[in-house]
Design a protein around this nucleic acid. Structure first.
Length: 317
DNA sequence: AAGCGCCTCAACCGCAAGAAG
DNA sequence: ACTTCTTGCGGTTGAGGCGCT
């Protein structure tokens, strides 16, 4: 026996909303609010609609400052990078896009963005590729390896100790577009000017790009004290989260990471640390999570707070 | 103009999680 | 601790629009 329906389907109207219904719902919510009970709202407002339908209509269409269509390239980049980071968590992705709803982002991804990315295959110049293996689709960040797979990411919503984004696609080999879509090293350095000042050229590397040397960083005493007895990853998570305001779902503003849950904070922080340690474009050979934490606690603290962590994560791609 | 197929996106469905009792 | 209720979410559907023949 299945779950009882939330309302009597024989007594409620279904299908597209009329302008009159929209106006009724909009004026009621604006005057009285939702009252914290969507189920009771349609009756109070005089609507012959299911509460869930009212909630959906309000959130996806009637709510103020909603934008429809016309996604910008910047929004594309954010969606792509967050999808690669956290998968199909549309509400989380939408919360990083001002005025966008999860439904809009989901539709946009399924009908346009996915085709834009995968429709015509990829080229050998791509920096980011997706390879299907068994039940999951792995993301390859560099030509030779996927170092992310070595970094366990805590996600209490899953029993798995590692986070593997899944893509509902069938091709065996798929590719993200190249650097035209993903910001380059400049975006990274712009976010972390502290680091760019400490770059030197590697002498023994086969690459000709700058290398960040661990010796250039000296963890502060309070950091060493705080991390005693913990793995650097645990410590990084703990210390970094201490910089964040309490999580809540209250906000919808771009760059405001207060809307993330603690689990999402963890995922973003891990990804933040990972990407700092390993740039997709191979611009850094080494930068430990401790160094990221050092920066988070030191010179970068104000910047991270002012920019918003999620935007920093988006900028990394 | 009619028919057809594809695309878009608003709306629905069912499940999971959390809150309330 | 358990049950019930409500919300929030991601996946899916299908009506209507559009372009092509």
């Amino acid at each position: 026996m299945g779950r009882a329906p939330c309302c009597d389907k024989a007594k409620v109207k279904r299908g597209p909303w009329s302008p009159e219904e929209d106006e009724t719902l909009k004026s009621y919510v604006q005057e009285y609010g939702t009252g914290g009970n969507w189920i009771a709202l349609p009756h109070k407002a005089g609507l012959k609609r299911c509460g869930k339908s009212c909630r959906l209509r309000w959130l996806n269409y009637l709510r103020p400052h909603i934008k429809h269509g016309g996604f910008t390239e910047e929004e594309d980049n954010i969606i792509i990078s967050l999808y690669a980071t956290i998968g199909s968590r549309w509400s989380t992705i939408a919360s990083n896009l001002s005025g966008r709803t999860d439904n809009d982002v989901k539709n946009y991804w399924n009908t346009k963005l996915k085709k834009k990315l995968f429709g015509s295959g990829g080229s050998s110049k791509n920096h980011l590729s997706i390879t299907k293996t068994h039940n999951h689709v792995g993301i390859n960040y560099a030509p030779n390896s996927n170092p992310r797979s070595n970094i366990p990411i805590h996600d209490s919503s899953s029993n798995s100790p590692t986070y593997t984004p899944s893509f509902p696609i069938d091709d065996d080999q798929l590719h993200f577009p190249s650097s035209s879509t993903f910001p380059t090293q400049n975006a990274l350095l712009k976010s972390f000017p502290h680091v760019s000042h400490n770059l030197t050229t590697s002498d023994n590397s086969s690459h000709s790009h700058p290398v960040l040397h661990q010796s250039q960083f000296s963890p502060p005493a309070h950091w060493r004290q705080a991390t005693a007895g913990s793995s650097s990853q645990e410590a990084f998570r703990t210390i970094s989260r201490s910089l964040l305001p309490p999580s809540s779902h209250a906000g919808y503003h771009k760059n405001n990471y207060q809307q993330f849950s603690s689990v999402e904070d963890d995922v973003l922080l891990e990804d933040f640390a990972f990407n700092f340690a390993y740039d997709h474009h191979g611009n850094f050979d080494f930068c430990s999570q401790d160094e990221v934490s050092d920066y988070c606690l030191g010179d970068g603290q104000d910047e991270i707070k002012s920019q918003g962590l999620c935007q920093s994560v988006a900028n990394l791609y």
